[in-house]
Amino acid sequence: MASGVKPRVKVPKSASAGEVITIKSLISHPMESGQRKDGSGNIIPRSIINRFTCEYNGQSVIDITLEPAISTNPYFQFDATVPEAGEFKFTWYDDDGSVYEDTKKVSV
């Protein structure tokens, strides 16, 4: 598990039914691209977050495949429709198999 990985997500606490809201998500992660070399000249192996998903009450909002060109501390901003009250679930999948999650409730 990459150490110190911490998500930070902005979701409005309430919305009107059917409103489109903007979500901002950040997560601390080095996103080691696999292009860098260490002091001895050996390639530092790739180790990135390769997928990010956002779901609301079980339905998909967005599903992003990440490649090494996404910057360290990956950031995504996107819009979601809020049909009724519920909970957003954010999931980040790491190359090393770890899964990081965050949830945010929204009232309507």
Binding site: V20, I21, T22, E55, Y56, Q59, S60, V61, I62, D63, I64, T65, L66, E67, A69, I70, S71, P74, Y75, F76, Q77, F78, D79, A80, T81, P83
Partner: peptide, 18 residues
């Protein structure tokens, strides 16, 4: 770089990243 797949609850088909 990335592939953005928009689901049924996407508010629109836009995204920003770095």
């Amino acid at each position: 770089v990335a592939t953005f797949n928009f689901g049924p609850l996407a508010g629109d088909q836009t995204a920003s990243t770095r």
